[in-house]
Write a protein that binds this DNA or RNA. Structure first.
Lengths: 230, 230
DNA sequence: GCGTGTGAACTGGTTCACAGCG
DNA sequence: CGCTGTGAACCAGTTCACACGC
């Protein structure tokens, strides 16, 4: 069944891929769905189903072959495809992201930074080429940038989004604390809202006991909220 | 019905709260569920249901009173309660978080930073008090820290988690690219996995057209993945 | 009429039970 | 026998339909 993988499953599969790399380096040959589930905070059922979404893997009675599983997931989700990215907004967070070398592990290569403050562009010290914000669309197109990372204040987020879309990016990761809408095109968008994460945690603490005494299953979100006492 | 609010609803309600603050400053008196939904990327139904999870609000035929709605949500989720937090791991990301003043808007006050490198502790320039990592539990207890933000490499994440739990924190926001488990206690945990976000986006782009031609409803996740052409 | 509040239907993602291979 | 693969049951959360207040 190579179709319609649910987004939560995709998220877990990406983690499976990472786990495989980890185990590979440790020299492990095989890994069972139960072990994967344990490591991911999901049930073995879920893990197996997720994997089967990508089509049948080397059928077997023994556990998954780490190498094979890894490339199975990589192929199914296109994770080996390298792509170019940019960061818009070079405040503290933006700068941190700009220089985060380990993104390369996810095949993500940051090739440009943008900021609206000429002052900041001049003082910043980084190996990545930086440009004024009004050049976003142009540079994105010229450099073949597929992914835009937004780290600007909420008020600027929408116009930055529009510029990125105009520049032809295919996906956007938005850190600005506001919902942005891709005006047109088939742009994929995910939001990472730090302020909201804090508020959610605060709320969960507050709701405390009376919130949900029961089991927490393999939580749909990436952002797993779970009570202790596993 | 003041019980068992689903986590996705909590997330949306937190955004409603933020939206109310925004509208309040703009001097708006009232706001309709349809408008809220539009702004949040959810349907008006969902918004109304979310709000009703917190109990009945000033029943009316006209739209919500912004002030009343805001305090309704704040009271229902305990968002007005200020709390103290710390950041563990003072790399680029950790430092950015440590100094992010706007967290205070979410009533989150960062009162301590930790790192295992004495060198880094000495060179860092910040207004927040910093401590060596081995003092986590002690300082957390002494300072009454309720929330821990983890920004260390994956390999250190679990031990940091344990130390935080030992220090009595009630909630943890984990930025390390690995699942951590609260060994004991009622700790609430959420993960923000940047590397995984990138991989997910890459996968969604790759799966592209054949992924899901259809509607995207008021997406369960915080991290809304949605195709353009709303 | 417009707009909220909510029980009932629906949806799709997770869980389960069991068939099948090594 | 252990472990994977998968159709079917289950269930949380979303959507809907309709009652009610302005």
């Amino acid at each position: 069944m190579v179709a319609k993988v649910p987004v939560p499953a995709i998220s877990r599969l990406c983690k499976v891929h990472r786990l495989c790399e980890e185990r590979e380096q440790q020299g492990a040959e095989r890994i069972a769905s139960s072990k994967i589930g344990e490591r991911l905070g999901a049930t073995a059922f879920t893990v197996r189903k997720d994997i089967s979404f990508l089509g049948e893997l080397g059928r077997s009675g023994t556990a998954y072959d780490v190498q094979r599983l890894k490339s199975h997931v990589a192929r199914g989700l296109g994770l080996d495809r390298p792509y170019r990215a940019c960061v818009v907004g070079l405040g503290r967070l933006g700068t941190a992201l700009l220089e985060y070398e380990r993104f390369a592990e996810a095949q993500c290569h940051i090739v440009a930074g943008f900021d609206s403050s000429i002052n900041r562009l001049e003082t910043i010290r980084t190996s990545v080429k930086v440009h004024p914000a009004y050049e976003i669309a142009e540079v994105a197109k010229r450099e073949g940038i597929e992914l835009g990372i937004i780290a600007v204040p909420a008020s600027a987020a929408q116009s930055v989004t529009d510029a990125l879309v105009q520049g032809g990016v295919r996906a956007i990761l938005n850190f600005a604390p506001t919902l942005v809408r891709p005006a047109a095109g088939d742009v994929i968008l995910r939001n990472v809202d730090l302020m909201n994460e804090l508020r959610i945690l605060s709320a969960l603490v507050y709701l405390g006991g009376r919130h949900d005494g029961g089991r927490r299953r393999g939580d749909p979100q990436d952002h797993t909220a779970r009570k202790g006492r596993e």
